[in-house]
Simulated scan of single mutants.
Amino acid sequence: MSLHNNRVVIKVGTSTLTYPKEKSNLNSFAKIAETLSEIQKKGYEIIVVSSGAVAIGKHKLKNERNYNNLRLKQAFVAVGQCRIMYLYDLFLKKHGITAAQILLNAEDVANQQKRENLIKTFNTLLKMNIIPIVNENDSVGYTEIESKEKVFGDNDILSAVVAVLCKAGRLIILSDVDVFYDKDPHLWEDAKLIRKVTKIDKNVMQAAGGASFGTGGMRTKLKAAKLAVSKGINTVQMVNHLIFFIKF
């Protein structure tokens, strides 16, 4: 597969875009926009895969109820996605950049005609120096927010799928954890640091465990990395704030 070396997919998670109580982190949106502008000025085409719609929608609606209800989650997504796009558009506009929204689901990738149309849309937007903001279409679908065996897994997997689809040369997955541990350090004080992973096997996946914040976690990040790397895509996981200092 011939890759576009100047094309990069950046996955931004819920923990990057929100405060602990799910309120939008405007400072983070501003810094992300500034960083994307600097990367674009260096000649890179950028695609952002963004989470956070459920959490931001829940906060905007001031809903404190437990949202283990599919329809309620979908309502949060519908509201939160509007807010997320408004903020990306607002802060990117300050740097003279236009944002575009792309919501997709598994069928859009699996169906050949839809996939080809999707690729053409991405290519057209990127040629116009527009930054696509991508999310799974959860307001009408349910696989990411409800199913245990999700189609994309979550937005970590979606970011790898998009990177493969668009033949990106690089995939960057932001995380709130700086290194790999044998279990979630947010939950376990005795979590042990694993300094080097040479192969993503069953033992590594078991150590990765499940989700922490948002819907993902280290497990889905490893799955995403495995998919992207198998297609020759240079994949990096970075702790959130380091994206502001990334060297291109």
Rank of each mutant, 00 (worst) to 15 (best):
220 T>P: 05
63 N>H: 15
177 V>N: 04
63 N>L: 15
170 R>C: 06
240 N>E: 07
140 V>D: 13
86 Y>V: 11
99 A>D: 00
40 Q>F: 06
212 S>F: 15
147 S>P: 12
38 E>V: 08
64 E>Y: 12
79 V>Y: 01
93 K>A: 13
176 D>N: 05
80 G>W: 00
145 I>H: 11
149 E>R: 03
184 D>N: 15
141 G>I: 05
36 L>N: 07
28 S>A: 06
78 A>Y: 03
20 P>T: 09
136 E>V: 12
70 L>Q: 15
121 T>N: 07
235 T>F: 00
78 A>H: 08
127 K>Y: 09
243 I>M: 05
196 K>Y: 08
39 I>S: 06
227 L>F: 05
45 E>W: 10
51 S>V: 04
78 A>T: 11
22 E>N: 12
107 E>G: 00
142 Y>R: 10
221 K>S: 07
90 L>E: 14
46 I>G: 03
242 L>M: 04
61 L>G: 14
190 D>Y: 12
51 S>H: 08
199 K>R: 05
48 V>S: 07
165 L>V: 14
242 L>S: 01
58 K>A: 13
238 M>W: 02
233 I>D: 00
226 K>A: 09
150 K>L: 13
85 M>F: 01
183 K>Q: 05
138 D>M: 02
75 A>P: 03
142 Y>P: 00
82 C>W: 06
91 F>V: 07
43 G>M: 04
144 E>W: 06
105 N>Q: 09
127 K>L: 08
64 E>G: 13
152 F>T: 10
98 T>K: 10
198 T>W: 00
128 M>T: 02
197 V>N: 02
90 L>R: 14
76 F>P: 07
77 V>C: 03
203 N>G: 08
244 F>A: 04
182 D>F: 15
166 C>V: 07
108 D>H: 01
184 D>E: 07
178 D>N: 08
82 C>K: 04
211 A>E: 15
52 G>T: 10
35 T>E: 02
97 I>Y: 00
63 N>R: 14
132 P>G: 04
221 K>Y: 07
137 N>D: 11
115 R>L: 06
191 A>L: 15
111 N>Y: 12
60 K>A: 12
199 K>F: 01
160 A>H: 02
128 M>Q: 03
6 N>W: 13
39 I>Y: 07
71 R>Y: 14
106 A>Q: 05
10 I>Y: 07
212 S>C: 07
213 F>I: 04
235 T>P: 08
113 Q>K: 14
118 L>R: 08
29 F>S: 13
176 D>I: 10
127 K>C: 14
29 F>L: 14
144 E>V: 13
233 I>K: 02
233 I>L: 01
